[in-house]
Amino acid sequence: MIKLIIKYFKFNLSAHMEYRVNFLIQSIGMIINDFFLLFFWWVLFKQIGTIREYGLNEILLLYSVITVSFGLSMIFFGNQMKLSSIIYNGELDSYLFLPKPVLFHILISRIDIAAIGDFAFGICVFFLSGYGGIKNFILLILFGMLGAILFASFNVIVHSLSFYIGNSNSLSSLLSDTLMTFSTYPHTVYTGISKILLLTVLPAMYFSFIPVQIIKEFSIIKLIQLLAANIIFVSIAFFSFYYGLKKYESGNLITKKM
């Protein structure tokens, strides 16, 4: 499986390299795009100092964890955001005949080139955060990989809704955006129902907040929580996709993958 991921990655990357200038503009554009987001926090912290345990350094660390996870997820599982339209348009047929597991094959067969910029941004910001260091860097990469799997699992779950309710594209994208929106603000500001949501159906706690807490102060219990959340979300993703696949109706669509 790892071999296949690497093969796809190389193949997709070389396809994008055909338009080298475009590749550079997309990646650099995404880095600039992400830096702009930090502007908001910089202005805010200049005005008010800190927000419930979060200062600029903590926000940089939070953004680092999010963008490394998101970047890795979209680089290696680049089709996750298109899953609902693939299902709804009846384009799964071409994957059903392939020897490797269907879901895995769909996810890895596309690369989101701009995500390379997100990943690079995350690494840069990590070393600016004041939490840089070899041990923390290893943790960042580990959490980046776990976050990438968690994010992809969440997207598989919400995009698999297309099996059950028809075209779920806008609803699935809304849920995915909601996870991202909640993840990018300090978890300490959330109270009441939002807090419960972040610990359950919207895995923002495990996607960004707990990894930040572990990097700040290592805790084996939190690490176990994180691994458990990953296992649960991956299992739900498999179940919702493969159970839904039984309901899939082919569109008899002839597609070409280039």
Binding site: Y19, V21, G29, M30, N33, F36, L37, F40, A114
Partner: peptide, 17 residues
Amino acid sequence: FEDNTAFLFVYSKILLT
């Protein structure tokens, strides 16, 4: 340019900030 998505992203972040 072949793809101008990056410009759109940067412009939208200018509006946000």
